[in-house]
Nucleic acid binder design. Structure first.
Lengths: 165, 165
DNA sequence: CGCTGGTTTCACAAACTTGTGAAGTTAAGG
DNA sequence: CCTTAACTTCACAAGTTTGTGAAACCAGCG
């Protein structure tokens, strides 16, 4: 843990966290560079870093930073900010925004539902296979609704425990 | 095998479903062969297929089948069954079992939680970064619990709408 | 206007992944 | 026990992904 004197961030400790959390994200399917960039932002005090800072901290080229943040911005996991009167960009992680992004695997689930619906249609609801697909579809529709409610409950829970961040 | 003229399975339609559902799974991060094998099982009437049937239907080698089912079995998405008095294996998808497997991204979430906990410890709960990590950790712990409850509700919902499959 | 710090795009080499044929292993059935 | 059907492992070729250096691009500032 860092001590008070000018709050020297323990570079070593931060790096250890970044790499280990990024590794988990990679395991869950995220690409390596976006995962590392995201972890770095998450563990920065201000919640923002510039391209240069990211490049230096992670030892990667400007090109890699550029690719990673483009991806993260598309997924709404980070926001881009231009600091006024400068050519520098800052990238920021909003906690709330990133939860939303996570649960917005919604797009993914919608894709599954579409494919399943077509399957049910073409195999017919009468066959055992058709019924299995219909049930699977029902499961995803159920989950969809429940996740939305769950996020509502989380916002309340969060408010109670953390105030608004 | 010849079709009884009552219920001819539309091979073309099944294949179309298999490929389109598998494509969705791939997009969500699953490997190609496991995704195709899984989709094929899901859309079979009996919910089971032998290695040979899988190989023929998907036009892939025995080696590919072997690799795919090993993966799926590890993830508890299919069960292996040996038909008694035969060298043939059958692979089966249990609907319930596969929902469980899906929500058992739990293993994944546990990994994230572990990494975050270490991060909170080493960065210290006092710093802004530490607090951000702590909140993120709290979110995952919250989700963990909620998902378990959601699955309970699903089982009831399912029972009502589908009887026990 | 053109210089300059900063970001993005592009082509490519290196690393990794994927699916295959073929050899190896296992066990049922003669 | 030996044969043989069925599954698994292995080494590799083909294909894909990844991150880089270098060039192109952009926008503030003098």
């Amino acid at each position: 843990m860092a001590e008070a004197n000018g709050a020297p961030r323990d570079v070593e400790a931060v790096s250890k966290f970044v790499e280990s959390f990024a590794a988990q994200l990679v395991e869950a399917g995220m690409q390596r560079m976006p995962a590392r960039v995201f972890a770095a932002l998450l563990s920065s005090d201000s919640g923002t870093l510039t391209s240069a800072e990211l490049g230096e901290q992670l030892r990667i080229s400007p090109a890699a930073v550029s690719g990673a943040v483009r991806y993260l911005a598309q997924q709404h996991m980070v926001a881009r900010e231009r600091e006024p009167g400068s050519r520098r960009e800052r990238y920021r992680v909003h906690s709330d925004q990133w939860y939303e992004a996570l649960t917005n695997r919604e797009a993914v689930i919608k894709g599954w539902e579409r494919a399943l619906r077509e399957g049910v249609d073409s195999l017919g609801g009468g066959s055992p296979a058709g019924r299995r697909l219909a049930e699977t579809l029902a499961f995803f529709e159920f989950v969809d609704g429940e996740v939305a409610l769950m996020m509502d409950r989380w916002r309340i829970h969060r408010e109670r425990h953390f105030g608004d961040g």
